[in-house]
Design a protein around this nucleic acid. Structure first.
Lengths: 212, 212, 212, 212
DNA sequence: TATGAATGAGTCTTCATTCAT
DNA sequence: TATGAATGAAGACTCATTCAT
């Protein structure tokens, strides 16, 4: 996980053939799944190769190293998941039934988190020690947080400090998912928890006068 | 070749002498610092021993294994930081100048996070795969989140769903610290960000009618 | 940091290919030879790998751990040596020239012991502290001592307390080999020693009236 | 356990003071007991020091190294046990009630073996890889096996090849003890086993015409 | 291209021995 | 003398990466 800025070796093939593309995709998918499930350091490259039904050797034809699988997988996940998320958000958001659809989005997010599992956490640590992972994280967060304000605006929501508020709302949703998925707390009433979050987001984006 | 499952903890010395205590503390401090800075898997026991200016062997007189250093370090950090935090909170919180002191607390929290650095993240991942780390996390979170409502109540703050609200507020503060310390974002106005968070917490704990 | 107790035996390859089998055999042979020559605790896995002209890593593809090499080696030795021993015994034993063939068997046994060398002893100690080694020893001893009475009976030798007598005879042979191989004693006349043992076995199995 | 022929360092004290002698004895006793119980490689010097209620450091004032404790312990055991054994043998042995007293001696031997336990086995291996241990073994065996013929002769037992016969008888007794103590075998009738051994010894030392 | 066996540096951990007090 | 904390070399085992086939 040492940071090297070496250019991708020539021997890493950017697959052109259909079959090759499919294989790279298969490795990426199997890889990111394992990585997310068991964490970076508890997953071996042999595990990944096995899960993808390929040889260990071939993995290194498509990926520079283990970390490269991670980055590719994260890219894939963000494309697969973030784009539709934003589309859903775009489609459903409007002032009249804000809360209702925000609740749908919360549920959507929870599903998203279940996929990440342990990786989700480790990513933060990885990001600190590895510039590539960090770069991904920054890019990912930005792409989400930058898009959301525009969507809101395009739906007539317009409050000061939108960028900061979206950030806060986004983190709140993140935490909600996180709590639900990873640390279920029997002392917590999750229905209430969700309502309070929605109320808070409402307060942030629509102002207290609209808050119920 | 041993077939016995005898606990090795017999040989772990719980230091009684002043010098021993100091040494265990020195190892713990050096250890947790490295662990926090570089992450669990990027820190070797040799690193820790070197940082503490001791031999590798002596580390294993005071700690069962590498993980034990982590847990001890976390315990130390939480004692060093959480108790004073709660004291500060207890002392400063009151209705009249709620926002002002909450702001102090935010700043206090930021300092706290700087200490944790990357460990803070990895901990989450570790907690998923390791019962001991998980146990620590649960204990730690509980001790904080359970204490805060009582402090609030003792200061006259009394709203429904206190537990859930405190949780939300706490996470919000966490995220704030995290953003500030780990992912400084030049597009973000941190003064505004902080004010919005305080406003949100105000809304949660005092209701919208008090919100400015 | 793993907390799972998943068997690692998944990753131990039971070689199917000819080359792999040959390699496992090579490691086993090199391993058991070193183990026998220098003893379990004086032989490192690196020694074994070097002697087998392989890397340390590959050893752990074929064997679970160091002990597994020992057990495999012992199995190999016992297959290589015990089966033919019994066959020889079966074939040669008959009343008319009992002593003559018993003498052949003694010599055969001596060769067998030369292979074991120091391991032969340490095995006893290992058996006390390790259930796997103990299991092997018990199995091995039993297989020999249980078979011999049947062979004797099938050759017309039938005396009371056969099981106990065989045991005594067997141990006597063991000791003879042991003395000859490991503790040559210049005060001892080995021709006489051998004759006395044969006479004793004769006495045990055929009764004193046949003893010359 | 490497074989070095270095002269005992000057710093090894040959204790002259009464207290020192007692301390060396205490270490030797505690040491050999542990060594016998758990085996050489499963006993640490710290274990020994603890069992003797002394510091680890002081051990190295009295003993050159770990092996030295073993040798000293073995010397002590052989003095403590072999001398009285021979005395008993000397006293009891006579033609008239040969079998009866030989049985006593067998029982005496069994007790002796219980003390040794696992060490007894490991010793053989140690002897192969270490000249000092080997020297002890040779000396020990010789002292026994050389003395016994003389005792026998002095009791009127006089047969050809006495030395070899004693050897065989001695080993037989050894094996008997060993079987009884370490590998109790439920298929074996130990009363019969003992009788057969006695009969065999009788045959060896007195000739078949006396055998019952 | 593909395979998966092979490599070997790197990790945690132990323990005989030493040495500051 | 005595202590027991400290040392550090050495060993078992892992796994990202390479390479012969």
């Amino acid at each position: 996980m040492k940071s090297d800025t070496a250019l991708k070796s020539d021997s890493i093939r950017e697959p052109q053939q259909k079959r090759s593309i499919a294989k790279k995709k298969r490795i990426t998918e199997a890889g990111i799944q394992l990585l997310c499930e068991k964490g970076y350091y508890n997953t071996t490259t042999v595990d990944i190769a096995k899960a993808a039904h390929v040889s260990t050797g071939i993995v290194y034809s498509y990926f520079k190293d283990k970390k490269d699988i991670l980055i590719s997988g994260l890219d894939m996940l963000s494309e697969q998941a973030v784009a539709p998320l934003l589309a859903t958000f775009q489609e459903k958001l409007n002032l009249s039934d804000f809360l209702e659809h925000m609740e749908d989005l919360l549920d959507y997010f929870v599903d998203f988190h279940i996929k990440f599992q342990s990786m989700h956490q480790e990513l933060g640590a990885l990001a600190l020690s590895d510039p590539d992972v960090n770069a991904f994280m920054v890019k990912f967060e930005k792409s989400l947080v930058n898009t959301l304000p525009n969507i809101c605006i395009s739906h007539g929501i317009d409050v000061p400090n939108m960028y900061e508020k979206i950030h806060i709302a986004f983190d709140m949703v993140e935490n909600y998912c996180h709590e639900v998925v990873f640390y279920p707390d029997e002392a917590m009433d999750y229905v209430v928890y969700k309502q309070e979050i929605l109320s808070c987001i409402h307060y942030l984006l629509l102002g207290s006068e609209h808050a119920k």
